[in-house]
Amino acid sequence: MTPTSSSDTLTPPAAPAPSGPAGGGARASRRFPWRLIAGKLVGAVVVLWGAATAAFLAQTALPGDRATIILNIRAGQAIERTPAELAAINQEYGLQNPLLVQYLEYLRGIVTGDLGTSYQQHRPVAAIIGEQMWPTIVLTLTAIALAWVIMVVWVTLTAGRGTKVSSVGAVLDTAVAGLPHYWLGIILLLVFALTLGWFPVISGTSPNGLFLPALTLAIPLAGFMGQATRAEFERSLDQPFVITARMRGMGDWGVRLKHVLRHSVLPAVTLSGWALGATISGAVIVESIFTRSGIGSVLVTAVNTQDLPVVTGIVILIAALYVVANILVDIAYVIIDPRLKKS
Protein backbone atom coordinates (compact mmCIF):
# COMPACT_ATOMS: atom_id res chain seq x y z
CA MET A 1 0.00 0.00 0.00
CA THR A 2 1.38 3.33 -0.97
CA PRO A 3 1.48 5.99 1.67
CA THR A 4 -0.82 8.20 -0.34
CA SER A 5 -3.85 6.71 1.28
CA SER A 6 -3.90 9.42 3.87
CA SER A 7 -5.90 12.56 3.75
CA ASP A 8 -3.52 14.91 2.05
CA THR A 9 -4.24 14.31 -1.60
CA LEU A 10 -6.84 16.99 -1.43
CA THR A 11 -6.09 20.15 0.41
CA PRO A 12 -8.72 22.62 1.42
CA PRO A 13 -8.85 25.64 -0.83
CA ALA A 14 -6.84 28.65 0.18
CA ALA A 15 -9.76 30.96 -0.07
CA PRO A 16 -13.01 29.93 1.49
CA ALA A 17 -15.45 28.74 -1.10
CA PRO A 18 -18.26 31.14 -1.78
CA SER A 19 -21.33 30.18 0.11
CA GLY A 20 -24.32 28.99 -1.83
CA PRO A 21 -27.12 31.38 -2.68
CA ALA A 22 -29.35 29.76 -0.13
CA GLY A 23 -28.13 28.27 3.09
CA GLY A 24 -31.69 27.31 3.79
CA GLY A 25 -31.45 23.96 2.08
CA ALA A 26 -31.75 22.29 5.43
CA ARG A 27 -35.14 23.83 6.04
CA ALA A 28 -37.16 20.91 4.69
CA SER A 29 -35.29 18.15 6.45
CA ARG A 30 -35.97 19.30 9.98
CA ARG A 31 -39.59 20.21 9.75
CA PHE A 32 -42.33 17.83 10.74
CA PRO A 33 -44.72 17.20 7.85
CA TRP A 34 -47.80 18.81 9.38
CA ARG A 35 -49.53 19.42 6.08
CA LEU A 36 -49.25 15.78 5.17
CA ILE A 37 -50.57 14.64 8.53
CA ALA A 38 -53.44 17.14 8.46
CA GLY A 39 -54.51 15.88 5.07
CA LYS A 40 -54.39 12.31 6.32
CA LEU A 41 -56.46 13.20 9.38
CA VAL A 42 -59.23 14.61 7.24
CA GLY A 43 -59.17 11.45 5.15
CA ALA A 44 -59.27 9.38 8.34
CA VAL A 45 -62.38 11.15 9.61
CA VAL A 46 -64.09 10.58 6.28
CA VAL A 47 -63.25 6.87 6.40
CA LEU A 48 -64.60 6.58 9.94
CA TRP A 49 -67.79 8.41 9.05
CA GLY A 50 -68.19 6.10 6.05
CA ALA A 51 -67.63 3.07 8.25
CA ALA A 52 -70.22 4.26 10.74
CA THR A 53 -72.70 4.88 7.95
CA ALA A 54 -72.12 1.43 6.50
CA ALA A 55 -72.57 -0.04 9.96
CA PHE A 56 -75.84 1.82 10.43
CA LEU A 57 -77.12 0.74 7.03
CA ALA A 58 -76.27 -2.86 7.85
CA GLN A 59 -78.39 -2.69 10.98
CA THR A 60 -81.38 -1.33 9.14
CA ALA A 61 -80.96 -3.86 6.35
CA LEU A 62 -82.13 -6.80 8.46
CA PRO A 63 -85.21 -8.19 6.77
CA GLY A 64 -88.43 -7.83 8.75
CA ASP A 65 -89.54 -5.77 11.70
CA ARG A 66 -86.50 -4.94 13.78
CA ALA A 67 -88.24 -4.95 17.14
CA THR A 68 -89.54 -8.46 16.43
CA ILE A 69 -86.12 -9.57 15.36
CA ILE A 70 -84.55 -8.17 18.50
CA LEU A 71 -87.01 -9.95 20.71
CA ASN A 72 -86.53 -13.19 18.81
CA ILE A 73 -82.77 -12.93 19.08
CA ARG A 74 -83.02 -12.27 22.79
CA ALA A 75 -85.37 -15.17 23.36
CA GLY A 76 -83.65 -17.47 20.91
CA GLN A 77 -86.97 -18.39 19.27
CA ALA A 78 -89.09 -16.88 16.55
CA ILE A 79 -92.66 -16.21 17.61
CA GLU A 80 -95.31 -13.52 17.13
CA ARG A 81 -94.92 -10.61 19.53
CA THR A 82 -97.59 -8.48 21.14
CA PRO A 83 -97.70 -4.73 20.39
CA ALA A 84 -96.86 -4.02 24.01
CA GLU A 85 -93.70 -6.07 23.85
CA LEU A 86 -92.71 -4.35 20.60
CA ALA A 87 -93.38 -0.86 21.91
CA ALA A 88 -90.98 -1.41 24.77
CA ILE A 89 -88.24 -2.48 22.39
CA ASN A 90 -88.99 0.37 19.99
CA GLN A 91 -88.69 2.75 22.91
CA GLU A 92 -85.43 1.22 24.09
CA TYR A 93 -83.73 1.30 20.69
CA GLY A 94 -85.39 4.46 19.39
CA LEU A 95 -86.88 2.51 16.50
CA GLN A 96 -90.06 4.58 16.44
CA ASN A 97 -88.06 7.60 15.18
CA PRO A 98 -87.54 8.33 11.47
CA LEU A 99 -84.43 6.71 9.98
CA LEU A 100 -82.59 10.00 9.69
CA VAL A 101 -83.04 10.69 13.39
CA GLN A 102 -81.89 7.19 14.20
CA TYR A 103 -78.85 7.73 12.00
CA LEU A 104 -77.92 11.01 13.68
CA GLU A 105 -78.48 9.46 17.09
CA TYR A 106 -76.22 6.61 16.08
CA LEU A 107 -73.46 8.96 14.92
CA ARG A 108 -73.80 11.03 18.10
CA GLY A 109 -73.48 7.86 20.14
CA ILE A 110 -70.31 6.81 18.33
CA VAL A 111 -68.67 10.17 18.89
CA THR A 112 -69.36 9.84 22.63
CA GLY A 113 -68.13 6.25 22.68
CA ASP A 114 -71.58 4.65 22.75
CA LEU A 115 -71.70 1.83 20.21
CA GLY A 116 -75.28 0.82 21.00
CA THR A 117 -76.82 -2.01 22.97
CA SER A 118 -76.48 -5.69 22.21
CA TYR A 119 -79.70 -7.36 21.08
CA GLN A 120 -78.83 -10.59 22.77
CA GLN A 121 -76.93 -9.70 25.91
CA HIS A 122 -78.86 -6.51 26.52
CA ARG A 123 -75.69 -4.74 27.54
CA PRO A 124 -73.71 -1.81 26.04
CA VAL A 125 -71.66 -3.01 23.08
CA ALA A 126 -68.71 -0.89 24.17
CA ALA A 127 -68.51 -2.83 27.43
CA ILE A 128 -68.72 -6.22 25.71
CA ILE A 129 -65.96 -5.28 23.28
CA GLY A 130 -63.88 -3.60 25.96
CA GLU A 131 -63.71 -6.81 28.00
CA GLN A 132 -62.47 -8.91 25.10
CA MET A 133 -60.45 -6.50 22.96
CA TRP A 134 -57.17 -6.45 24.82
CA PRO A 135 -56.07 -10.09 24.25
CA THR A 136 -56.86 -9.71 20.56
CA ILE A 137 -54.78 -6.55 20.27
CA VAL A 138 -51.86 -8.19 22.07
CA LEU A 139 -52.12 -11.17 19.73
CA THR A 140 -52.32 -8.97 16.63
CA LEU A 141 -49.38 -6.75 17.52
CA THR A 142 -47.24 -9.75 18.49
CA ALA A 143 -48.10 -11.41 15.19
CA ILE A 144 -47.18 -8.34 13.13
CA ALA A 145 -43.89 -7.94 14.98
CA LEU A 146 -43.14 -11.62 14.48
CA ALA A 147 -44.04 -11.39 10.79
CA TRP A 148 -41.61 -8.49 10.34
CA VAL A 149 -38.78 -10.41 12.00
CA ILE A 150 -39.41 -13.56 9.95
CA MET A 151 -39.79 -11.58 6.74
CA VAL A 152 -36.71 -9.40 7.14
CA VAL A 153 -34.45 -12.30 8.10
CA TRP A 154 -35.78 -14.55 5.36
CA VAL A 155 -35.58 -11.97 2.58
CA THR A 156 -32.16 -10.66 3.60
CA LEU A 157 -30.83 -14.21 3.65
CA THR A 158 -32.31 -15.39 0.37
CA ALA A 159 -32.93 -12.43 -1.95
CA GLY A 160 -30.51 -11.90 -4.79
CA ARG A 161 -28.49 -15.05 -4.08
CA GLY A 162 -28.34 -16.48 -7.54
CA THR A 163 -31.19 -18.05 -9.42
CA LYS A 164 -31.71 -21.18 -7.32
CA VAL A 165 -31.78 -19.75 -3.82
CA SER A 166 -33.84 -16.73 -4.75
CA SER A 167 -36.42 -18.72 -6.66
CA VAL A 168 -36.83 -21.09 -3.71
CA GLY A 169 -37.27 -17.98 -1.58
CA ALA A 170 -39.77 -16.42 -3.96
CA VAL A 171 -41.81 -19.61 -4.37
CA LEU A 172 -41.96 -20.08 -0.62
CA ASP A 173 -43.13 -16.48 -0.16
CA THR A 174 -45.99 -17.05 -2.57
CA ALA A 175 -46.94 -20.45 -1.16
CA VAL A 176 -46.89 -19.28 2.44
CA ALA A 177 -48.77 -16.06 1.69
CA GLY A 178 -51.75 -18.08 0.48
CA LEU A 179 -52.00 -20.40 3.49
CA PRO A 180 -55.39 -20.17 5.19
CA HIS A 181 -55.11 -19.34 8.88
CA TYR A 182 -57.32 -22.20 9.94
CA TRP A 183 -55.18 -24.78 8.19
CA LEU A 184 -51.84 -23.46 9.37
CA GLY A 185 -53.25 -23.09 12.88
CA ILE A 186 -54.44 -26.69 12.98
CA ILE A 187 -51.09 -27.98 11.72
CA LEU A 188 -49.18 -25.99 14.33
CA LEU A 189 -51.62 -27.07 17.01
CA LEU A 190 -51.33 -30.73 16.04
CA VAL A 191 -47.54 -30.69 15.82
CA PHE A 192 -46.35 -28.37 18.58
CA ALA A 193 -49.15 -28.57 21.13
CA LEU A 194 -50.68 -32.03 20.75
CA THR A 195 -47.74 -34.13 19.55
CA LEU A 196 -44.70 -32.39 20.97
CA GLY A 197 -46.49 -30.75 23.89
CA TRP A 198 -44.30 -27.63 23.80
CA PHE A 199 -47.25 -25.30 24.06
CA PRO A 200 -50.66 -25.52 25.73
CA VAL A 201 -53.52 -26.86 23.61
CA ILE A 202 -55.88 -24.31 25.11
CA SER A 203 -54.23 -20.93 25.04
CA GLY A 204 -56.57 -18.95 27.26
CA THR A 205 -54.77 -15.71 27.96
CA SER A 206 -51.42 -17.15 29.05
CA PRO A 207 -48.27 -15.63 27.61
CA ASN A 208 -47.02 -19.12 26.78
CA GLY A 209 -50.18 -19.67 24.80
CA LEU A 210 -49.50 -16.58 22.75
CA PHE A 211 -46.73 -17.99 20.61
CA LEU A 212 -48.54 -20.49 18.38
CA PRO A 213 -51.53 -18.23 17.60
CA ALA A 214 -49.17 -15.35 16.84
CA LEU A 215 -47.05 -17.58 14.62
CA THR A 216 -50.15 -18.76 12.77
CA LEU A 217 -50.99 -15.17 11.91
CA ALA A 218 -47.39 -14.16 11.28
CA ILE A 219 -46.35 -16.76 8.72
CA PRO A 220 -48.82 -15.86 5.93
CA LEU A 221 -48.30 -12.17 6.63
CA ALA A 222 -44.53 -12.62 6.40
CA GLY A 223 -44.99 -14.34 3.05
CA PHE A 224 -47.28 -11.61 1.83
CA MET A 225 -44.97 -8.77 2.84
CA GLY A 226 -42.00 -10.85 1.72
CA GLN A 227 -43.20 -10.85 -1.88
CA ALA A 228 -43.20 -7.07 -2.01
CA THR A 229 -39.98 -6.76 -0.04
CA ARG A 230 -38.12 -9.32 -2.12
CA ALA A 231 -38.97 -7.61 -5.40
CA GLU A 232 -37.80 -4.27 -4.04
CA PHE A 233 -34.74 -5.85 -2.42
CA GLU A 234 -33.57 -7.39 -5.67
CA ARG A 235 -34.30 -4.19 -7.55
CA SER A 236 -32.28 -2.18 -5.02
CA LEU A 237 -29.36 -4.61 -5.23
CA ASP A 238 -28.89 -3.56 -8.85
CA GLN A 239 -29.17 0.15 -8.18
CA PRO A 240 -26.18 2.40 -8.89
CA PHE A 241 -25.90 3.50 -5.26
CA VAL A 242 -25.36 -0.11 -4.23
CA ILE A 243 -22.69 -0.48 -6.88
CA THR A 244 -21.11 2.73 -5.58
CA ALA A 245 -21.09 1.30 -2.06
CA ARG A 246 -19.45 -1.90 -3.31
CA MET A 247 -16.94 0.22 -5.20
CA ARG A 248 -15.90 1.98 -2.01
CA GLY A 249 -15.08 -1.36 -0.41
CA MET A 250 -18.30 -2.43 1.24
CA GLY A 251 -19.04 -6.13 1.44
CA ASP A 252 -22.20 -7.96 0.45
CA TRP A 253 -23.60 -8.05 3.96
CA GLY A 254 -22.81 -4.41 4.59
CA VAL A 255 -24.66 -3.44 1.44
CA ARG A 256 -27.65 -5.60 2.30
CA LEU A 257 -28.03 -4.37 5.85
CA LYS A 258 -26.99 -0.72 5.56
CA HIS A 259 -28.40 0.28 2.18
CA VAL A 260 -30.69 -2.24 0.52
CA LEU A 261 -32.82 -3.25 3.48
CA ARG A 262 -33.99 0.28 4.17
CA HIS A 263 -35.16 0.71 0.60
CA SER A 264 -36.77 -2.68 0.38
CA VAL A 265 -38.98 -2.48 3.47
CA LEU A 266 -40.85 0.55 2.16
CA PRO A 267 -43.57 -1.43 0.32
CA ALA A 268 -44.05 -3.65 3.37
CA VAL A 269 -44.39 -0.58 5.59
CA THR A 270 -47.17 0.62 3.33
CA LEU A 271 -48.87 -2.75 3.67
CA SER A 272 -48.68 -2.74 7.46
CA GLY A 273 -51.77 -0.59 7.99
CA TRP A 274 -53.80 -2.94 5.87
CA ALA A 275 -52.09 -5.88 7.55
CA LEU A 276 -53.33 -4.80 10.97
CA GLY A 277 -56.95 -5.12 9.86
CA ALA A 278 -56.31 -8.39 8.08
CA THR A 279 -54.52 -9.78 11.11
CA ILE A 280 -57.31 -8.80 13.49
CA SER A 281 -59.86 -10.59 11.33
CA GLY A 282 -57.48 -13.53 11.05
CA ALA A 283 -57.34 -13.50 14.84
CA VAL A 284 -61.03 -14.40 14.87
CA ILE A 285 -60.19 -17.76 13.30
CA VAL A 286 -57.02 -18.34 15.24
CA GLU A 287 -58.70 -17.64 18.56
CA SER A 288 -61.29 -20.24 17.70
CA ILE A 289 -58.63 -22.89 16.92
CA PHE A 290 -56.51 -22.27 19.99
CA THR A 291 -59.46 -21.58 22.27
CA ARG A 292 -57.97 -18.24 23.10
CA SER A 293 -60.03 -15.48 24.65
CA GLY A 294 -60.54 -12.36 22.60
CA ILE A 295 -62.91 -10.62 20.29
CA GLY A 296 -63.19 -13.65 18.00
CA SER A 297 -65.75 -15.72 19.85
CA VAL A 298 -67.80 -12.59 20.62
CA LEU A 299 -67.89 -11.76 16.93
CA VAL A 300 -68.72 -15.26 15.71
CA THR A 301 -71.52 -15.63 18.24
CA ALA A 302 -72.88 -12.24 17.30
CA VAL A 303 -72.84 -13.04 13.58
CA ASN A 304 -74.55 -16.36 14.21
CA THR A 305 -77.31 -14.76 16.26
CA GLN A 306 -77.51 -11.68 14.02
CA ASP A 307 -76.67 -9.50 17.01
CA LEU A 308 -75.83 -6.62 14.71
CA PRO A 309 -74.91 -3.88 17.19
CA VAL A 310 -72.06 -6.07 18.40
CA VAL A 311 -70.92 -6.89 14.87
CA THR A 312 -71.03 -3.30 13.71
CA GLY A 313 -69.39 -2.10 16.89
CA ILE A 314 -66.44 -4.39 16.21
CA VAL A 315 -66.38 -3.34 12.56
CA ILE A 316 -66.23 0.34 13.48
CA LEU A 317 -63.54 -0.30 16.04
CA ILE A 318 -61.40 -2.17 13.55
CA ALA A 319 -61.91 0.54 10.93
CA ALA A 320 -60.73 3.04 13.56
CA LEU A 321 -57.67 0.91 14.29
CA TYR A 322 -56.99 0.69 10.55
CA VAL A 323 -57.15 4.45 10.29
CA VAL A 324 -54.81 4.97 13.24
CA ALA A 325 -52.42 2.34 11.93
CA ASN A 326 -52.32 4.03 8.54
CA ILE A 327 -51.39 7.35 10.08
CA LEU A 328 -48.59 5.62 11.98
CA VAL A 329 -47.53 3.94 8.75
CA ASP A 330 -47.38 7.29 6.99
CA ILE A 331 -45.17 8.68 9.72
CA ALA A 332 -42.92 5.61 9.63
CA TYR A 333 -42.68 5.91 5.87
CA VAL A 334 -41.51 9.50 6.03
CA ILE A 335 -38.94 8.59 8.66
CA ILE A 336 -37.54 5.85 6.43
CA ASP A 337 -37.86 7.83 3.19
CA PRO A 338 -37.47 11.51 4.05
CA ARG A 339 -37.72 12.48 0.40
CA LEU A 340 -41.49 12.35 0.70
CA LYS A 341 -41.55 15.36 2.96
CA LYS A 342 -40.90 17.57 0.04
CA SER A 343 -43.84 16.43 -2.00
Binding site: P240, I243, T244, A245, M247, H259, D337
Partner: peptide
Protein backbone atom coordinates in the same frame (compact mmCIF):
# COMPACT_ATOMS: atom_id res chain seq x y z
CA UNK B 1 -6.59 2.22 -3.98
CA UNK B 2 -9.24 2.71 -6.65
CA UNK B 3 -12.08 5.21 -6.53
CA UNK B 4 -15.12 4.86 -8.72
CA UNK B 5 -17.49 7.57 -9.96
CA UNK B 6 -20.73 6.63 -11.67
CA UNK B 7 -23.12 8.85 -13.58
CA UNK B 8 -25.91 10.77 -11.88
CA UNK B 9 -25.36 11.08 -8.15
CA UNK B 10 -29.12 11.19 -7.63
CA UNK B 11 -29.11 7.41 -7.91
CA UNK B 12 -25.41 6.70 -7.41
CA UNK B 13 -25.51 7.93 -3.84
CA UNK B 14 -28.02 6.31 -1.50
CA UNK B 15 -31.08 8.50 -2.05
CA UNK B 16 -32.31 7.99 1.51
Amino acid sequence: RVGFILQDALVSLDPL
